[in-house]
Design a protein around this nucleic acid. Structure first.
Lengths: 347, 347
DNA sequence: CAGCGGTTTGTAAACGATTACATTATCAGT
DNA sequence: ACTGATAATGTAATCGTTTACAAACCGCTG
């Protein structure tokens, strides 16, 4: 490997001069600058950034922790983060934890061992105590899944969003409303369940335990829940699910059973991932301002990097209901109703 | 920041001893080991890995270059890579290029500046010449999108796969077969188009230029292509698309027009992403051994890391046709036919 | 108790850059 | 020709580890 010394020697200057050329210092004559640049080109010299990072005590690398890469939901968020990070000349790298605590820990140690300058969690496995402790010394932000840890955070108001969705179903005349959620209680899950209950209670509707189904974020969960609900003596007329993937499963199972999603059973999704608008029938859902969530989270992280002792902030961004066919009372043809989500290529 | 010196001082030993404890060298007495460990805990000391990486001239970090995070297709591939990398105690980090040459370049420089030990490209923007040059000095592997660059590579035989798919359509009795592809010619695109043509020619079927539609990987492309094809004097009875996302658009548009995907027009997807099995009707497609592709690619990369001068290899893994409803001749009900793809959670 | 082998520990060079400070070159003004 | 200011360049310390080599220590043996 060629080092700065090799370049200096070959160009007949000192390493300091080469370093100055590399860093664009103005205290180098045009003649030597050219010579050095030539030699750099000639030897195809690339500085060892480990050393530079060491000397400058910064890496300009930020980590984004995703539980999984296969979730459509994250792409716009990550794009927002990236755009914001680039403004301050930071690079981002995505770490996939698979919701595995050890994997998560191994990526966190990149931060504490100075291989990265900050982390945004899109979900985390560690407990609040541990996260808070790390956040006290290193820049950390939570996005979308915000626990009780002492960090800066950004998300939507999940409780309110669920409340709005369920209230909407009620306003359509539904009285027996089911909920399909996950066994694993993410912060967003807890809030969405709370919003569901609040809406039901405020409209004096009973929450029948048999109408509560639990599983994972998979469409299989939606299909199974659909079966279970249809098997009841008096099935619900509407279902609120906490994720589009579950809603898709519900809808598919209804179709398999020859039932019409919407008229026969209304289905509400959550997140407005591309499949919700793509599916036939299209699926009513709650949209989050994903790009903004990411952009804002990154903004908070950069603030923390500039000043680790800056106070923690909690920001809530506005959500939106996207009404589509799956909550349509009368479905005479399969024309796509409004609520087309922002154009997003499915590459 | 506490350094190894602080620990040494506090524990009353030399930095060498602390380093030995950190690295699990056996030449430390149990007594001092314990004392040092206590101090490390007490000061919550974390070594600066920039230095360690510098001394050891390795980072044990591998980069995976994705054009986009929103593609379902990549998740299993990445998992395969990760599993293989972990066996050799390497961490992986995902870099999203957005198909932007500058972004790609900025991540590649992480390799040449010794911040990472190797790269797997799931697609690349640089030209073959540039890639070959880098690959001569640094470990690089191409996966799924293999150009003419001098690197090790893994993919399926895209030409053969397309050939098989189109031959299958022909065996079902179709004679007028359209193709929907992308403007941008990725290596896989070129091969799939070639396979399409080969199958048509070998069965003495004319390739009507009006039956060739081009766009992006988006479902909008599928919808538009569907419109264009239906507007023809004699529309095709089957369509081969080079991506599931396009096929979904086709199917959706057929449904909107009140036509039956399958009986009225057969639709073939490619890649077997989760949406293909999820959609109603489910979509016939070509499945790639995604996990294995990733695992194998990483295996080749690790080989290159061990020995940069090891010869480049090109591996082709077997594909599979997954027959579903969208190529079904008579569709009496919406029962899901075989070809359920490997269970994959949609999180 | 000198000498020996083995274990444990310490000293200091090295990794490859950045940068404060020192030195040298350049040149205008007298 | 000399001075002093300014620009260009060089020297060497430094970042925080790892590790080769040297030194100290310990218990035994003869």
């Amino acid at each position: 490997m060629t080092t700065i010394k090799d370049v200096a020697q070959r160009a007949g200057v000192s390493v300091a001069t080469v370093s100055r050329v590399m860093n664009g210092s103005n205290k180098v004559s045009e003649t030597t600058r050219q010579r050095v640049l030539e030699v750099i080109e000639e030897l195809s010299y690339r500085p060892n950034l480990l050393v530079r990072n060491l000397r400058k005590a910064e890496t300009r690398k930020l980590l984004i922790m995703l539980p999984s890469i296969s979730n459509q939901f994250y792409s716009q968020i990550v794009r927002g983060m990236e755009d914001r990070a680039l403004l301050d000349r930071f690079n981002i790298m995505v770490c996939i934890t698979n919701s595995n605590p050890e994997t998560e820990q191994s990526y966190i140690s990149l931060l504490t061992t100075r291989l990265a300058d900050g982390i945004v969690f899109l979900s985390n496995e560690m407990d609040d105590e541990a996260i808070s402790q790390i956040a006290a010394a290193y820049p950390i932000v939570q996005c979308c899944e915000c626990t009780g840890a002492k960090t800066s955070k950004v998300s939507i108001d999940n409780r309110q969003a669920a409340y709005d969705a369920v209230s909407h179903l009620i306003s359509l005349g539904h009285r027996r409303i089911a909920m399909v959620s996950t066994e694993k209680k993410h912060p967003s899950t807890v809030d969405r369940e709370a919003g569901f209950r609040q809406a039901m209670e405020e409209h004096s509707l009973a929450v029948d335990d048999r109408l509560l189904q639990y599983g994972t974020y998979s469409f299989q969960t939606g299909m199974r829940a659909c079966e279970a609900l249809l098997a009841l003596d008096s099935p619900p007329s509407a279902v609120f699910t906490i994720a589009d993937s579950i809603a898709v499963g519900m809808v598919k199972q209804l179709l398999i059973r020859g039932l019409r999603p919407g008229p026969d059973m209304a289905v509400y999704g959550f997140d407005d991932t591309s499949i919700a608008s793509l599916y036939t029938p299209s699926i009513t859902t709650v949209a989050q301002p994903r790009y903004d969530l990411g952009y804002t989270a990154m903004d908070l992280l950069l603030r923390k990097i500039k000043e680790i002792d800056s106070p923690n902030q909690t920001l809530l961004l506005p959500h939106k209901l996207v009404i589509r066919e799956s909550t349509c009372g009368d479905q005479t043809d399969s024309t796509v109703l409004g609520g087309r989500s922002e154009q997003e290529e499915l590459v």
